[in-house]
């Protein structure tokens, strides 16, 4: 153990009697040991007194989290503990079907973009970046790019740890890619989405604005 380790153990009271006697002897004779002890003693006493109160939450703050916790804990976990062979086979079939559908989906998306006269949303506009939103307080946020003339209004959604945004002009959900992580300006917050609600009113409003 070096000086600091010995002194910390001395303050913590974890030294053996012999080690403790040795530290006491050093402290009585060495100025360096005394200075080290003072320094460690200071930061230790500060931490001991201050840390227990550091970041104390309010009752209101924690109470607000509880309903969501209770509701989520009732829902079944997405991770199954046991998956039998039938389920595994079905899962593989589903993945295979989804992979086969990828080219079709890409074609369909291209067609939609062409029909709305938008060649490529991320390339032609400054699209919003990933926005960290609390799933409790702000389920979604309206964001827009601050640079360039083409201000895009979009709704960012948090899907687990990832984010997607929905361009309300097209109604398309798009992943937030590294290319879209440019500067961003938050233009406002929407209320929590009502279950079953759609984006149609906003989409219509955006189309009206464009016209």
């Amino acid at each position: 153990m070096d000086i600091k380790e010995q002194l910390l153990a001395y303050l913590e009271g974890t030294l053996t009697p012999a080690q403790r006697r040795e530290v006491v002897r050093r402290l009585a004779t060495s100025r360096q040991w005394q200075a080290e002890l003072e320094a460690i003693q200071y930061s230790q006493s500060q931490l001991k007194r201050e840390m227990p109160a550091f970041g104390c939450p309010t009752h209101k703050q924690l109470t607000a989290l509880l309903p969501d916790i209770l509701e989520k804990s009732k829902q079944p976990s997405r991770l199954r503990e046991k998956v039998d062979w039938t389920q595994g086979g079905m899962l593989l079939c589903m993945i295979a079907v989804m992979l086969m559908m990828v080219p079709i989906l890409i074609k369909a998306q291209t067609a939609v973009l062409a029909s709305t006269n938008l060649k490529n949303i991320p390339a032609t506009t400054n699209t919003p970046v990933a926005i960290r939103v609390s799933t409790l307080e702000v389920p979604r946020a309206v964001v827009a790019s601050s640079s360039g003339a083409n201000v895009v209004e979009a709704v960012a959604y948090r899907i687990q740890a990832d984010f997607q945004y929905c361009d309300i002009r097209t109604g398309l959900f798009l992943p937030i890619s590294s290319r879209t992580r440019s500067d961003v300006r938050v233009v406002g917050l929407t209320p929590a989405p009502v279950p079953g609600s759609t984006l149609e009113p906003s989409r219509e409003a955006a189309l009206e604005t464009r016209q």
């Binding site: 109160a53 104390c56 703050q61 960290r132 938050v186 917050l189």
Partner: peptide, 18 residues
């Protein structure tokens, strides 16, 4: 690289005392 919404909006989300 994400942007904290609370930071952007300056909501003052630091912990409160009792």
């Amino acid at each position: 690289p994400t942007v904290a919404l609370s930071d952007l909006l300056l909501l003052g989300l630091e912990p409160h005392g009792p």
